[in-house]
Amino acid sequence: MQEASMTPAPRILCIGAVLWDIIGRSASHMRQGSDVPGRITRLPGGVAMNIALAAARSGLQPVLLTAIGRDPEGEELLAACTRLGMDMSHVYRSDDLPTDRYMAVEGANGLIAAIADAHSLEAAGDKILRPLTDGTLGSARAPHDGLIALDGNLTLPLLRDIAASPAFAAARLAVAPASPGKAERLRPFLGHATATLYVNLEEAGLLCQAEFPDSAAAARALVARGAARAVVTDGGRAASDAGRHGTVSLLPPAVMVTRVTGAGDTFMAAHLAAEAAGPDPQGAMERALATAAAYVSGDNAL
């Protein structure tokens, strides 16, 4: 009797920042000038990497498209990502660009400050996309038709090119800004036929140049401005998903927050994985909120 063949995990291409996350965390409330005890960690991070890690935990197979230097930090980062189960075979390696880094300080009252140094990713430009245009993973004539998670650390001109490129026309695109400061880079995807925007309430306001009382109003406004679909989070308040299916709004589980860096990326990946398992907007939102709550409470290990 033949053994039943196992169905391979759905693949997700994660495009954007993969770098070293250097995070200082303290159990104390902090303000400008605070000097407190805590812990400092260095882990593989970046929006694309955070999404890939969470996607792998949710049952997807991540393939990373990014830029990593050939410096010692880059060699170490590539090895660490590979050990975590990431497919790094399509990463652009630069001889003259250093490996990117992100540094943040978090206290009991949340994120205090952060600096993202993704200059090498920006300088690499469209070189990271070659596998999607040279036939390796797709091309303009035979575009990749799977799931792609795209982060806003890419430059605005490159994001504009992606939004208009036939090589991305068949993909199911999920787009997230790297931070509120880069939210407006997502504007080219307002009007894209297959793109879902994953933003928080502040980022939705920046994209729409308006203030919203809640995530539902923000998600509907993004759809009105041309988004095919918009998923908006608002911390411990209700998150909302608006699109052709209408609007779904749900409260996240109440948990003690112990970390915030990567929470939005974890939510997004869990939502994408749930959607890949079956198109149920309410069920996908429930699973994504539960996964993000477990992450911020420290119950999910990186």
Rank of each mutant, 00 (worst) to 15 (best):
M1I: 10
E3C: 05
S5Y: 00
T7P: 11
T7S: 05
A9W: 05
L13T: 03
I15P: 06
W20Y: 03
D21H: 06
D21C: 02
I22C: 07
I23K: 04
A27G: 09
A27K: 05
H29S: 13
H29K: 12
M30Q: 13
Q32C: 10
V36D: 14
V36I: 13
P37M: 10
I40P: 11
I40E: 09
R42Q: 09
G45T: 05
G46D: 07
V47F: 00
A48Q: 08
M49E: 01
N50V: 02
A52F: 01
A52L: 00
L53R: 14
R57N: 09
S58W: 05
G59A: 13
L60E: 13
L60H: 11
P62Q: 11
L64V: 14
I68K: 13
P72E: 10
E73Y: 08
E75D: 10
L77F: 09
A79D: 12
T82Y: 09
L84K: 11
L84S: 15
M88Y: 11
H90Q: 14
R93Q: 15
S94E: 04
D95I: 05
D96T: 13
D96F: 08
M103N: 02
V105T: 07
N109K: 00
G110P: 04
L111M: 11
L111D: 07
I115A: 03
I115D: 00
A116H: 00
D117M: 03
A118E: 06
L121S: 04
D126W: 04
K127G: 08
L129A: 00
R130Y: 02
L132K: 02
D134R: 06
S139E: 08
S139R: 06
P143Y: 14
P143W: 12
P143H: 14
G146D: 12
L147Y: 03
I148W: 06
A149K: 02
G152Q: 07
G152W: 00
T155V: 06
L158P: 15
L158F: 11
R160L: 04
R160F: 01
D161G: 14
I162R: 05
S165P: 10
P166H: 07
A167P: 00
A170D: 14
L173P: 15
A174D: 01
A178E: 09
S179N: 13
G181E: 14
A183Y: 07
R187Q: 11
P188V: 04
L190N: 09
A193C: 03
T196F: 01
L197F: 06
Y198K: 04
N200E: 10
E203Y: 09
G205C: 08
L206Q: 12
L206T: 12
L206K: 10
A210E: 15
A218D: 08
A219G: 11
V223C: 13
R225A: 12
V232E: 01
D234W: 01
A238Q: 06
A238C: 06
D241G: 04
V248H: 00
L250W: 07
L251C: 06
P252F: 01
V255T: 15
T261W: 15
A263S: 15
A269M: 13
H271P: 14
H271C: 10
A273W: 09
A274H: 12
A276R: 12
P279F: 01
P279N: 00
Q282N: 09
A288Q: 06
T291S: 08
Y295P: 02
G298I: 02
D299P: 02
L302V: 09
